[in-house]
Nucleic acid binder design. Structure first.
Lengths: 407, 407
DNA sequence: ATATTTATTTTAAAGGTCTAATTAAATCAA
DNA sequence: TTGATTTAATTAGACCTTTAAAATAAATAT
């Protein structure tokens, strides 16, 4: 007779998939009764009972009785709603920009638990300086918000540049003086919790997926404009990263042969027409007055005031932006494009003019254009995305732990 | 006591996944022993034995002893190789072009079992005319190759235009006079086997994935140039179709604001610079001599002979093509791009000049450019793709049948 | 109270996969 | 030739998961 086999459970252990799925359904629904979960995962109530029992046990979810959901008839045993237990985990999200670092805390339900912001000592740091600086910043942020470092279950980090997320490498970033920096692992060495790192545009996509306008949409695209132009691609509910794991370089897509000079050194990049520096570069000849909100705002005011040169700057940028968007639509045919950002660009770019230009540049069939929506987040958009990314990672870890605890 | 539960087997019936996986591994390997299969699917030998027994039973695979694979030591029980059983199914692939219909038969191993070609009566037909014409053509092709219509297990159909593959609808095609034609279902009504239909570029991608240079590559992109410019996207081993299920419209990607007029009615499309008609349009002013292989060949000869005008036509097309490719690379960062086709364009376009231009237009990091490979298929490339698509569909159906036979 | 209705949990059968043991089929060594 | 050795494939039995069906729970309606 064979001795009891080890609990390796081999292969594609259905349970993991089930647990993940149930957790995702609960997160998406906010609160939901077991029987409705069973419905959505095409599993039986019995299975849902088993899985939710584990998740309750682990403290990842909780029952939520107060208001019976107004569904169905008032007869019969009332359904008891389940929800994510916010206190299960607290995540930190950090966004590193060239001038400042912003940080936020999110609980497991996605609710804000604190914010923090600080200046960068210099616009670019070495890897070890960056690690020390982030450690210090995170510690300060915890203190400022009455949290202990140990109470955090995970940290998400977003940086501009080219990042290999699965390996935690930063191939290149404007905020780092070194290339190919193993930033994640260096951080993880001095922090007591897991660290996740990604390109900032991908993180915004993740935030849109979990908390924003991408909820429940399997395929969508997020475009951000600011210092540069970023893009995040979600296909089949997952962030698409190319071969090298770096984000899509929409900003360096060419919209003009031998066109405007880009800061990447090439010509004709979309970024060279629509990013901050591109607009300001053209505005340079205009001799603008000082404006309270900077030169870009001054340019905007001038355009609004009827200055033809200023208007033509925005006009060209709009048309190029529309062309870039149209190309994305022609290639992906997405259901939804989210223009996500905090800056003023969208005030010009998301004009009827742009939409019309997109429309005339997309190969028309009977179906309508994809939904193009703007989402103006606050300053914390990027940091929230980073925290969302950490939440996903911690969620996976928690779910995997369950299997081990049993064995 | 509960009566024996029905064999609904619900949820993600692991077995299906397993069977599919094993079949895919065998197909990819050509021939492979059970123990090696176990290795590649991270399953146990026991499971592989069980699954392969089913597949053998069903006649989808067969043992293949003759030459012991030279692997490992010569000691021990020799491994017996398994392979796909070619006779398990015969598939037809049909490619409809504006001037001709080409057709091929493939067996379940992917070996050619016959070919056929015929002219289209007119360049565009109504749906019912098309159905009748295809039925007639398929019947003739069977007779010409000593096959009976009943012996076919599936038919794949590729058409240019915009196709909703899952629903079998042709929204628009240059070969159909009607829009929104339910071509698949109409065909399936008069044919005794399942019918699959898709955009032709997607089918070429499928052919590359199953038989060509895309074997074993999870993510790659196929570009075709001919009448138009097509693109097929494979992500995560699956063909990516946008929201409306239509192929990526790479050809109508804009490479120039207010650029050359495209036959789609818009301006600046890539197609308007590199497709047949675009080259010929420019050549029109050149007063070329008649050439045995048509005007396009005459243009090519002129360019080769040093005619500056002819050369400049190709030069511009090359640069635009490079720009389009660079955009694809910037967006997808694919591991591999396959330039797939039968026509002469690649003789010019795949020049060092193009590669260099791509290189200078891609955002450089330390990693090298993606592999860009040309694959010149014969005339039957498109039809083979269609047959490959049918093979995949029939494969799925066969695998699903197994479960039912048991119950 | 009791019946009815609906949600959840329990129970037991069915079907998977896995480990370990066994059997099969070859070579190697005397 | 025979037995040891080696490697592949199959079989046996443990264990895990899911599911249908039965049982239980918790409410309203009568």
């Amino acid at each position: 007779m064979a001795p009891p086999p080890k609990n390796t459970n081999g292969l594609a252990s259905q349970r993991h998939a089930g647990r993940r799925q149930v957790l995702a359904v609960i997160r998406k629904a906010g609160q939901i009764a077991r029987i409705d979960i069973a419905d959505r995962i095409t599993g039986s109530p019995a299975t849902v009972t088993a899985i939710t029992a584990e998740l309750l046990d682990e403290g990842l979810i909780e029952e939520h009785s107060p208001k019976t959901p107004p569904s169905s008839s008032p007869r019969g045993r009332p359904r008891v709603a389940l929800k994510i237990r916010g206190d299960a985990h607290i995540l930190a999200g950090i966004k590193v920009a060239s001038h400042a670092v912003s940080l936020c805390f999110l609980d497991f339900e996605g609710r804000g638990r604190g914010e923090f912001e600080t200046r960068m000592p210099r616009s670019a740091l070495s890897t070890s300086e960056m690690v020390a600086f982030l450690h210090e910043t995170l510690t300060k942020a915890c203190i400022a918000n009455g949290l202990s470092l140990d109470s955090l279950s995970g940290v998400g980090l977003g940086v501009a540049g080219i990042v290999d997320a699965p390996r935690g490498l930063v191939y290149w970033s404007p905020t780092l003086t070194e290339r190919n920096a193993p930033l994640r692992d260096h951080l993880a060495e001095i922090l007591p919790m897991p660290v996740f790192i990604d390109n900032d545009a991908n993180l915004v996509a993740k935030a849109e997926q979990l908390f924003g306008k991408g909820q429940g949409v399997r395929d969508f695209i997020v475009v951000t404009i600011e210092q540069g132009v970023g893009m995040g691609i979600v296909i089949d509910d997952r962030i698409y990263r190319g071969t090298r794991g770096c984000g899509a370089e929409f900003g360096h897509t060419k919209v003009q042969l031998d066109g405007a000079l880009c800061r990447c050194g090439q010509r004709g990049c979309l970024e060279a027409y629509v990013a901050d520096y591109a607009l300001l570069r053209e505005a340079g000849t205009l001799n603008l007055p000082d404006a309270p909100h900077g030169q870009l705002d001054a340019l905007f005011q001038a355009a609004k005031g009827g200055n033809e040169t200023a208007r033509s700057i925005f006009h060209r940028a709009s048309r190029m932006f529309a062309l870039g968007l149209a190309n994305i639509i022609n290639i992906f045919d997405p259901k939804l494009i989210i223009l996500s950002g905090e800056r003023m660009q969208f005030d010009y770019f998301y004009a009827q003019e742009v939409l019309d230009a997109v429309k005339t540049s997309v190969l028309q069939i009977d179906a309508p254009l994809p939904d193009i929506r703007i989402h103006k987040w606050g300053d914390l958009m990027w940091a929230k995305g980073a925290a969302a990314y950490a939440m996903e990672g911690v969620s996976d870890i928690s779910v995997q732990e369950i299997g081990k605890n049993v064995g």
